[in-house]
């Protein structure tokens, strides 16, 4: 790509300003979906165009960028997006959570608690948590304005009557700052508690649906539940086979066609850091 033909981080400054305005509005009204004039990006809709636009708008020359998909830096789409910013912005990139200032993610929140100087950018496919209950935008906007979330509670209640527990495992709805019910993007509900009072700024970009929303640092983020059916997260009855972690989200890896499985951390940086710490402890 010829650098003279494209602005820093691809988008022109006018567009970035428009996106930043939407971000600021989103921060001012936590959990509210701000419409923005999403651009056609050189990658397909549904592949992170919203996240990429948000990242492009907040990225500065001194930022250090990390991109993960499914918790891993090496999944195809994470590699492609990291390469995109390396090419168009020339910023430093990293796979280490603690070194990054901007982290773009799809489907996971890093295991390591994020800090105040960091920004977490989520890629969002369907920003509207009520969409599958009410397909019309004109209706859902009204429901949000009136905080009318009975439909969602009925859905969760029906889960309980049918299965004995809430049968939503990812994109588990949260209520932000006591008002807006928000889709946390398709992260597993395991990650929901990390959003609560997170020190880092959380930004959400949905390119195809043209929405941006935000959770400012230290904001109250509560997963919807009932008093007698409190929210709970996924648990495994075994540790990560690579690093021994008992408190991280595990991927199930199929090893053969005879039912042999391996469980390992989905957050590859977390797993690698733990492994190398153990290696040092053993050798030290």
């Amino acid at each position: 790509m010829n650098k003279q033909h494209y602005n820093f981080a691809y988008l022109d400054e006018q567009t970035k300003r428009m996106i930043r305005r939407a971000i600021l509005k989103g921060i001012a009204v936590p959990g509210y979906q701000v419409p923005f004039a999403s651009r056609e990006m050189p990658m397909p809709y549904g592949w992170g165009t919203g996240g990429v636009q948000v990242t492009a708008a907040v990225l500065g020359r001194d930022d250090v960028l990390k991109v993960i998909d499914q918790g891993s830096d090496d999944t195809t789409n994470a590699v492609a997006i990291r390469g995109f910013f390396k090419k168009t912005a020339g910023v430093e990139t990293t796979t280490q959570t603690r070194e990054a200032t901007v982290i773009q993610t799809r489907h996971r929140i890093p295991e390591e608690p994020l800090k105040a100087h960091q920004i977490l950018v989520y890629q969002v496919p369907i920003p509207e948590p009520l969409r599958f209950l009410e397909p019309r935008e004109t209706e859902t906007r009204k429901m949000h304005a009136l905080s009318e979330y009975g439909l969602m509670h009925v859905k969760l209640y029906e889960d309980i009557t049918r299965h004995g527990h809430i049968a939503t495992t990812y994109a588990y709805p949260v209520q932000v700052d006591g008002h807006y019910v928000m889709d946390p993007s398709p992260t597993p509900k395991f990650d929901n508690p990390k959003m609560q009072r997170m020190a880092a700024l959380q930004l959400f970009g949905a390119g195809r649906e043209k929405r941006i929303y935000a959770i400012p640092p230290h904001t109250e983020v509560v997963s919807l539940d009932f008093d007698d059916h409190p929210f709970s997260i996924q648990q495994w009855d075994r540790p990560c086979e690579l690093c021994g972690a008992r408190d991280s989200y595990l991927d199930e890896i199929v090893l053969d066609d005879k039912g042999k499985r391996m469980f390992a951390c989905s957050d590859t940086d977390h797993c690698e850091r733990r492994q190398s710490a153990q290696g040092e402890a053993r050798h030290g």
């Binding site: 056609e40 397909p44 809709y45 549904g46 592949w47 165009t49 998909d69 499914q70 918790g71 999944t75 195809t76 789409n77 799809r106 489907h107 996971r108 496919p125 495992t169 990812y170 994109a171 398709p186 992260t187 597993p188 509900k189 395991f190 195809r208 996924q234 989200y249 595990l250 991927d251 199930e252 989905s266």
Partner: peptide, 22 residues
């Protein structure tokens, strides 16, 4: 372009959510 992007994004890894559903 919106439609093809979203349909074809199903090719991207979804194993974290699939794990949760499993």
């Amino acid at each position: 372009i919106q439609a093809t992007g979203f349909i074809e994004h199903l090719k991207l890894p979804h194993y974290v959510d699939f794990q949760a559903e499993l």
